[in-house]
Amino acid sequence: MRRMKLAITGLTACSGCQLTLLNCEDELPELLGHCELVYFPLAESGNVLDVQFDAAIVEGAVSTPKDLELLFKLRNASTHLVAYGTCALFGGVAAMNNRVSTRRELLRSVFGAGEKLPESFPPVPLANFVSVDAAVTGCPPEKQEIMELVVALAAGTLPPARSYPVCTECRSHENLCLLLEKRELCLGPVVQGGCNARCPATGIVCEGCRGPVREANVAQELELLLERGFGRDEIERRMSRFKPEWDYGKRS
């Protein structure tokens, strides 16, 4: 069987998603029997870009001209382009202040006044520039979900779609509902599940790291949180931690 040619890389991101893939120690040896890591700079395993890839797995948001150049290159060279992780899908942590401060202010606060500022623009998802064939959400994604995707690609298919909010898994695991019982700022109802409700299972609210679920009733979630005494600013701040743009009027 022909080994699938893979590119794995990151744009503006922390490399955490790529590390998650590298942490799949049990599966990697067998996986490498089916994939050729032609381009995976983080793992120093292949640095070749000018071939045709079966799939490019791209972490991170787009926020520099270099990001954009690499993204276009990979899109053109790949049969499947995978948005890998919350930044690639929604902008993620790097984009949380997109609506709060200008890029220039942010760069100044990092690099200091008077320094030459690097060229960059507000971080945005891959799909703002290119078409995306598959997605794995999460900050970082669940090991199981990235393995499902890579194995499906190797088998010539894509993993089946599933879509339910964090609450579905959270309730099914019989966790205490932090939104109802403790009246905390939990985003479970509007956030994409698949994480086995990791945080609520340990008593920590869902902060929304997996981005919005398809049928998110954002307006009602907002109302619920306001009723619980949280301020609009605080709520919006929390909601934009992993995705800057929410439609707070959306009900369906």
Binding site: C167, T168, R171, C177, V213, E215, A216, N217, Q220
Partner: peptide, 13 residues
């Protein structure tokens, strides 16, 4: 229809 958050809890439970 306007207030249901589609969290799925009713049917899960």
């Amino acid at each position: 229809a306007s207030t249901c958050v589609s969290c799925g809890a009713c049917s899960v439970c």
